[in-house]
């Protein structure tokens, strides 16, 4: 029974890891590759470590495996965030099919500072129009 559960978890984890490796090769863009490599490989390795915990069936080993899972779950997003930030500030181009680039025009690639757009002019006329139409 232990071996069946452990083997199922191993198969699930390996499937996710293979998908993540394929995604790293097939995705068109650094940022999509980061997304692919972080999420599904963390899930896959987590499933494999869970399989180890189930297989050995000992509280000391299970606690070590679960500590590793928690460590991976905490550190993988941080590493992915820093890699994406470094890639963007290095000027790595985005995929041409990208729909949203919210940093566009706000991040200065020369000085590496982030600035908002110029102050939006006060909506003085529009407010009056709205009030008049409502009353």
């Amino acid at each position: 029974m232990r071996e069946i559960i452990s083997g199922t978890l191993l198969v699930i984890g390996t499937a996710f890891i293979l998908i993540s490796a394929l995604g790293v090769v097939r995705m068109p863009d650094v940022y999509l590759r980061i997304a692919s490599s972080t999420k599904s490989s963390t899930l896959g390795v987590g499933a494999i470590l869970l399989a180890t915990a189930v297989y050995f069936d000992e509280i000391g080993i299970a606690s070590r495996a679960i500590a590793t899972i928690i460590f991976l779950l905490i550190t993988a997003p941080v590493a992915a965030h820093m890699m994406g930030r470094a890639a963007y500030s290095n000027g790595v181009p985005l995929w041409e099919g990208t729909l949203y680039n919210e940093l566009k025009g706000q991040y200065d690639l020369e000085t590496h500072t982030l600035a908002s757009f110029e102050e939006v002019s006060k909506p003085d006329t529009n407010l009056d129009d709205i009030e008049q139409s409502s009353t």
Binding site: G13, T14, I17, S20, A21, V24, S37, S41, T42, G44, V45, I48, L49, A51, T52, A65, T68, L72, A76
Partner: peptide, 11 residues
């Protein structure tokens, strides 16, 4: 990704 896979291989 390769080091993360290494963790899985070790497990």
């Amino acid at each position: 990704l390769m080091t993360t896979l290494g963790i899985g291989v070790i497990a």
